[in-house]
Design a protein around this nucleic acid. Structure first.
Length: 257
DNA sequence: GCGACAG
DNA sequence: ATCTTGTCGC
């Protein structure tokens, strides 16, 4: 499967050009497993401690922080068998504001720049944001996954669109609820877009934690996407590579001016 | 016109 | 996303 630099998310396009481009992305995307590694081999440090795998899949988390009103810092943290093997970041100017549905055009440039700084090549990319759970089935995880032709997963903290098939209030840890397409999504009603995944939950009856909204980016099906996120979320709500990218995005600010 | 809306 | 006080629970 080829990379698609021609479909890169460029800020500078008009809105009337962005949306058709997203439909092309969705057409090029593969929303089922097409990976060259064993998803079951993705582990957390503790589980992997026994064997310091050189052959374990490389999973990278990606996240952004902001320096000004007009510069983004994108951070990538690559992990293997639960250990950090490389970190990279890039600072680029922000060209457009945040618009729901068009996030990839705001943050895609910085992300591609940070990925270019990475020397290892990841087997799987985890993004802070949606994949197929998107109006045109082309969230930032899908867009970057297709452009780079790397398996990817979207991990969002809130739901952009789509409809949970049952209540997602106070789900027990380890459970998931289907998210299906509704009228706001460019797919037949009822299409499985992803899952609300409860990676952590409090024991107490009052306070509770909201689920993550996990969806295929590219070359990963919804079940595998949810499985991988659960496998990588041991101690905290967010999967470890995303959490690490989150804190590195903050930490790397001091390395800039 | 009104509501919904990742980061 | 970012800012920031207050509150809950272990």
């Amino acid at each position: 499967m080829p990379t698609r630099p021609d479909l890169a998310p460029e800020a500078g396009l008009s809105r009337d050009e962005m949306e058709p481009l997203q439909r092309e992305i969705a057409d090029a995307a593969v929303f089922e497993d097409d990976v060259r590694f064993d998803p079951a081999a993705i582990t957390t440090p503790l589980e992997a401690a026994a064997s310091a795998d050189d052959s374990a899949p490389i999973v990278a988390g990606v996240d952004q922080s902001f320096l000004d009103d007009d510069r983004a810092l994108s951070a990538v943290v690559a992990t293997q068998a639960g250990e950090v093997i490389e970190r990279a970041h890039a600072v680029t100017p922000l060209e457009i504001p945040y618009i729901p549905g068009l996030l990839a055009f705001r943050e895609g440039g910085p992300i591609l720049a940070a990925l270019a700084e990475l020397s290892v090549d990841p087997d799987l990319l985890l993004f802070d944001g949606s994949g197929r759970i998107h109006f045109r089935q082309a969230g930032i995880a899908t867009h970057v996954g297709v452009v780079r032709d790397v398996p990817s997963v979207g991990v969002a903290k809130s739901l952009l669109c789509g409809e949970p098939t049952e209540s997602t209030e106070n789900l027990p840890a380890g459970t998931r609820v289907s998210i299906e397409a509704n009228s706001r999504v460019d797919a037949p009603d009822g299409t499985l877009l992803g899952y609300a995944v409860q990676t952590r939950q409090y024991d107490s009856p009052n306070r509770h934690i909201n689920p993550l909204y996990v969806s295929p980016g590219h070359r990963v099906g919804p079940e595998t996407a949810a499985d991988v996120v659960q496998a990588l979320s041991s101690q905290y709500k967010l999967p470890e590579p995303v959490r690490l990218a989150d804190s590195y995005a903050e930490e790397a600010k001091s390395l800039v001016e």
